[in-house]
Computed example of a mutant assay.
Amino acid sequence: MSHARLYDAIGATYAVTRRTESRIAVQVWAALGDARTVLNVGAGAGSYEPSDREVTAVEPSAVMRAQRPAGAAPCVAAFAESLPFADQSFDAAMAFATIDHWQDPIAGLREMRRVARRVVVFTKDFSALGLFWLDRDYLPERAGLLLGRPSLAELARSIGARVEPVLIPWDCADGFYEAYWRRPEAYLDADIRRGMSVWARVGPVAEQRAVRGLRADLASGRWSESNRDLVDLDAAELGVRLLIA
Rank of each mutant, 00 (worst) to 15 (best):
residue 233 L to Q: 15
residue 134 L to N: 03
residue 59 E to N: 10
residue 195 G to E: 03
residue 206 A to Y: 02
residue 150 P to E: 11
residue 142 R to L: 10
residue 225 E to R: 15
residue 82 S to Y: 07
residue 200 A to S: 14
residue 134 L to D: 02
residue 24 I to Y: 01
residue 38 V to D: 00
residue 38 V to Y: 03
residue 208 Q to M: 12
residue 239 G to Q: 06
residue 212 R to N: 12
residue 117 R to L: 00
residue 183 R to E: 11
residue 164 E to N: 05
residue 66 A to D: 13
residue 39 L to N: 04
residue 212 R to A: 15
residue 10 I to S: 05
residue 15 A to D: 14
residue 157 R to V: 01
residue 223 W to R: 03
residue 77 A to N: 12
residue 209 R to D: 06
residue 120 V to C: 02
residue 4 A to D: 15
residue 88 Q to C: 07
residue 108 G to N: 01
residue 73 A to I: 04
residue 106 I to A: 08
residue 151 S to K: 11
residue 47 S to V: 00
residue 95 A to Y: 00
residue 84 P to T: 08
residue 88 Q to G: 13
residue 202 V to S: 09
residue 122 F to M: 14
residue 156 A to H: 04
residue 197 S to E: 05
residue 97 A to V: 11
residue 29 W to D: 11
residue 231 V to P: 00
residue 90 F to G: 01
residue 176 F to Q: 09
residue 9 A to K: 14
residue 42 G to D: 07
residue 28 V to N: 05
residue 200 A to D: 10
residue 65 R to M: 09
residue 220 S to A: 12
residue 226 S to C: 11
residue 175 G to F: 01
residue 154 E to Q: 15
residue 168 I to F: 00
residue 26 V to Q: 14
residue 132 F to W: 15
residue 151 S to Y: 11
residue 198 V to R: 06
residue 84 P to R: 13
residue 63 V to R: 13
residue 25 A to D: 13
residue 234 D to E: 15
residue 173 A to Q: 14
residue 142 R to T: 12
residue 155 L to N: 04
residue 1 M to Q: 13
residue 61 S to L: 07
residue 16 V to F: 04
residue 62 A to Q: 13
residue 218 L to H: 09
residue 128 A to V: 04
residue 57 A to L: 03
residue 224 S to A: 15
residue 163 V to Y: 03
residue 113 R to Q: 14
residue 234 D to R: 15
residue 60 P to E: 06
residue 19 R to E: 06
residue 2 S to V: 01
residue 76 V to R: 13
residue 17 T to V: 13
residue 102 W to S: 00
residue 237 E to T: 08
residue 102 W to N: 01
residue 221 G to F: 02
residue 17 T to K: 13
residue 241 R to P: 00
residue 150 P to T: 11
residue 203 G to T: 10
residue 236 A to G: 15
residue 160 G to A: 09
residue 218 L to W: 05
residue 215 R to Q: 13
residue 158 S to G: 09
residue 25 A to N: 10
residue 157 R to I: 00
residue 233 L to E: 12
residue 142 R to D: 01
residue 88 Q to S: 14
residue 214 L to S: 07
residue 40 N to C: 11
residue 195 G to D: 06
residue 215 R to W: 00
residue 30 A to T: 14
residue 182 R to C: 10
residue 154 E to H: 12
residue 245 A to W: 09
residue 238 L to C: 06
residue 220 S to Q: 04
residue 21 E to R: 05
residue 104 D to Y: 02
residue 191 D to W: 10
residue 177 Y to G: 04
residue 118 R to G: 01
residue 85 F to Y: 12
residue 162 R to C: 05
residue 213 G to T: 07
residue 31 A to R: 09
residue 171 D to H: 14
residue 176 F to C: 01
residue 39 L to G: 03
residue 58 V to N: 07
residue 221 G to M: 03
residue 46 G to S: 09
residue 231 V to N: 10
